[in-house]
Write a protein that binds this DNA or RNA. Sequence first.
RNA 1: GGGCGAGUAGUUCAGUGGGAGAACGCCUCGCUUACAACGAGGAGGUCAGAGGUUCGAUACCUCUCUCGCCCACCA
Length: 930
Amino acid sequence: MQIDEGTRERKNLSRMESRYQSKKTEQKWYDYWEKGGFFHVEPDLNKPPFCIVIPPPNVTGILHMGHALNNTIQDILIRWKRMQGYCVLWIPGTDHAGIATQNVVEREIFKEGLTRYDLGREKFIKKIWQWRNEYGSTIVKQLRKLGASCDWERERFTMDEGLSEAVLEAFIKLYNKGVIYKGNYIINWCPRCRTALSDEEVEHEEQEGFLYYLKYPVINAEGKFVTVATTRPETMLGDVAVAVHPNDERYEFLKGKKILLPLINRELQIVRDDAVDLEFGTGAVKITPAHDVADFEIALRHNLKPVVIMDDTGKMNENAIHFKGMDRFKARKEIIKELESQDLVEKTEPYVNSVGHCYRCHTVVEPYISWQWFVKMKPLAQPGIKMVKDGEIKILPSRWEKVYLHWMENIRDWCISRQIWWGHRIPVYYCENCWEGDKENSFEPQDVSKLKGVMVSKEQPLVCPDCGGKNIIQDEDVLDTWFSSWLWPFSAMGWPKEDLKLQAENSQLNDLAYFYPTSTLVTAQEILFFWVARMIMAGLEFTGEVPFRDVYIHGTVRDDKGRKMSKSLGNAIDPLGIIDEYGADALRFSLISITSVGQDVFLSKDKFIFGRNFTNKIWNAARFLISNLDDLDGDFTIENFSLFDGWILNNLNNLIAKMNRALEEYSFNEAANLLYEFFWHQFCDWYIELKKKDLYSEDRDVKNRASVMLIFVLDNLLRLLHPFMPFISEDIWQKLKVYLTKSYEVMGLQFQDTNSLMLASWPKEVRQFKDEKSKDEMEDIIAIIQCIRNIRSELNVPPSKKTALVLVGERERLLADFKKHSDYLMPLAQVSSLEVFSQDINRPANSAFGAAGGLKIYILLEGVIDLEQEKKRLEKKEKGLGRELKQVQKKLENKDFLNKANPEVVLKTKQKEQSLKVQLKDLVVIINNL
RNA sequence: GGGCGAGUAGUUCAGUGGGAGAACGCCUCGCUUACAACGAGGAGGUCAGAGGUUCGAUACCUCUCUCGCCCACCA
C-alpha cells in the first residue's frame, strides 16, 4: 500500500471539479499512451492475433462524423480485444487519393494563376508532395484526438516506397497473366479533371431536363422524316446511324433507304438491332458510338466507325463544324436553335433522367471513347463470390452480402488508367523506335504485351528487347487510386517483400505471416464496391487468402433531415468542435449509443449532450467515491457479501456476459446502453446510495469493507467503459489504482498491475458472484421503496416529512431482510421508523396503502393525509387492477390458450391472475374501511 | 425497371411470438454533505394501413401508402 501516493491522490480528488473537464485529461492520456508505446505490438505466438487495417482516409481529408463513427467502432473493437488478451494491431495510414489531392493542389496554384500544365508534370508532382508533407498529417492528428489506439509506428501512405512497389508488383502480375488489357472503349470522362473514371466513380443523379424529338430527313423520300429522341442533342453531330428494332413495322418503309444527318449532312445508315426498345420514344434511336455506351455496342455489331465530337475538356472539336470550340452545354442550346429554325424539332418534352457526375468535382461526366487500360474482372470475381458464399468472409449485416454478390456477379471490366499526374504511373514502357502506337480504328481489346516495342517493368528498361532501341518512354497515365487501396490489407504489412508463410524461427516472424488475414474490416456502405469487393479479389489473387474474416458495415451519418453530411450543404457537424466542447469520450459514446447495427445515423448537435452528461455522471460518482476513501489499512476481510453486494455483483456478472455477447454481434449500441443503464441506474442510483452509510462510518472495518466493494465494482465498470470512453476511464482508473491491489486481495482475487487501463484485463464473469436470490430479493426491495416514493409523491407529502412505515405479509425472509437493512433502506424512502407483521393486521389509522413485492405497505401520514384524496387514489388503482385482471382472465377462459400455449406461459398467466386477485381483494377491503 | 432500409410516446430512436421501452422534451416536488449537466415521482402510444398465419401479432407472411438509399446501356 503506497500511503503517500494514496494521500496525494485523495488531495487531488478533493480538488476535483464537479464538472468533468475533458480538455485537461484527453491530451495528457493520449500522450501517455503513445509515448509509453502501448499501441505498438510485435507478433507474439503466445497470444492469438487480432488485426484491423484502417480504411485509409484521404490524405486531403479532415475528420468528419463518418470518420468519427468508423474509427470509434474500430477503436472499441481494438481496445476490447486488447484487454481480452489478444495481440492486437491496428494499422493506420492515409490514401494518396489521386484525383482529390491533385484537385486540391490545382486549386492552390490556380490562385497564382497557374494550371498544372504551366508547371509541367515533374514540378507539379513536387508541389503535391510539398503539400502532402505540410498538410497530409491533419487527419491522423485528428484521429489521435478521437482516441484511436493505432500503432503509429506502422503508419503507411499509399505512395510510400513499399506500397508503391506493391502496386507495380500487382500490375505486372496481372499484366503477365493477361488480365490487363488496353482498349479503345467508351469510358466515363470528367472534362474538368480531364481524366477517365471507373463506373464506380460516377455518381448518378436524377435531373430535370428535356427529351428532344429530332426529325432526320429520309434521303430520296420527299417530306419523310425519321424522328429520334434524345436528351443530349449535341451528340447528334457524332451520329453515324439510326437504329430501329428488327420487328418494328413502323419503319418497314426505310428498307433500302438512307437518312441525312441535319446540319452536317452526313449520310446515315439504318441498322436493325434488338437493343432498341419498341416502346420507348419513337422506336428509332440515333447512334453516337463515340459518346454513348449502348450506341458504341450497337456500332460494334454493325461495324460503324465512331465520330468523336468533343475534346478532353468537354468542348466541341473540329468534327463539330461551326460549333467547334463551344462548350457542350452551350452547343446543346445552339444546335436546338438551328434545328428549330429548319423545322427539324418535332417536339420537346420535360424529362427526368439520371445524369452521371464526377465523384470528385461533381462535373457532369461525358461518355467518351478513348484508349484506356482495363482489368478483366470476371476471372477475379469468381473466387471472391465463392468465399462469401462459403462463409469464409462474413459480411454484416447480412443484407449487404446480397448487394455484394449482385455486383460481383454482374461485374464489368475496371478502367484503371487516369490521365492525371498524381499517383502510381503505369509501369508500361514503349520503344520510340519500334512501337507502332495505339491502333486508331481498333475497337477490340488489345493484349499489349504481345505488341512489338512494349515493355512492362518496375524500373525503366534501358534497351528495347525487340529492336535494341534506346529511346524508351513510359506510359503517361497513372493508376486509379483504388488500384493501390485494393492491396491495402497486405501491402500495408509489407507485401510483396514480406512472406506470407510463417517462418520456423520466431525471429523471422513478420506481420504478414502473423496478422494476415486480418480479423475485421469496419467500413461504410459507400465503399463496398470501390474498396471492399476489390480487396477481397486482390487478397485472393495475390496472397491466396481472404484479406479479412468479417466485414462490418455501419450506417451513414446523416443530418437530422436525413441528408448526407457535406461541406457544400453546410449541414456538417464538425467532430472536432464536439470534442472541443464536450470531449472525445462524449462524442464517442453518443455516436455509438445512437447507432444501431447497420442503420443510418441521424445526427444533430444536441445529441452529444447525452454523452456529455454521462461523462459527468461517471466523473461525479468517481469523485464522490474516491474522495471519501481512506487508506485501506489493517487486516480486514469480507466473509459474506451482504444482500446489496450480492445483488450488484450478480448484476455485474450479467452485465459482463451481456456486453460480451453484444460486442461479438457488433451491437455496439446495445453494449453501450447496457453499460449506461448499469452505471447510472444500478450503480449510482442504488448501490452508491445504499453504501453511503457504511462509507461514512466511524468504524474503520465497516468503512473499509464498503470501500473495497465500491472500488471493486467501479474498477470493473471502468474496464468495461474503457473501449467506449478511453480517456475518462483511464483518468479515473489511474486515481483509483493505488487501492486496487488491496481491494482485489480482500475480494479473494489478484490484481494485475499495468501501466494503463488500456492494458488491463477485460472483466470476466466470476462464478461465485452469481446470486439470483439476492437479485430477486433486492428487486422486491427496490419495488417496495419505489412504491413508497410513489405514494408520497401522489399524496404531495413534502420530501422533508419523514413518515413511519408498516410492512405486512407472509414473506418472512423479505420482511426480515428489510428490517435487517432498515438503517440503509429507510433514508431512501424518507421513512422514520419501521414495523413489520407477518400476520395480517387492520389498516393503521391515517395511513396510505400500497402493495409491492408481495407485501402490503402502510405509510403513516398523521396530519398529512387527506382521506378523500387517498380514497380517490386507491379507487383509481382499483380500476387499473380490475382492467388488468379482466384481460388475464379473458386469456385464461380461452381453451385454445390453455391447450396450445407454452405451459410455462400458462402457468405464469395463472400466477398473475392470482396475484392480481389478491391485490384487488386487499385494495377493496382497504377502500371499504376508509 | 430491379433491390434494400425505415415508418413505435411531442421529438430522436431501441426492441420483442405472450407484461409497449429508453433518451430528450413536458408536468409536480426537492439545491437531502458526488452530480441541478442532479435526485424523486408523473402524464403521454389503435406500435403507418389492410388482409393472412397463430390459442395469441407491434414483431412472422402478403399487399397498399409514405419517406430514404443503392443498382440498371431510362435513346
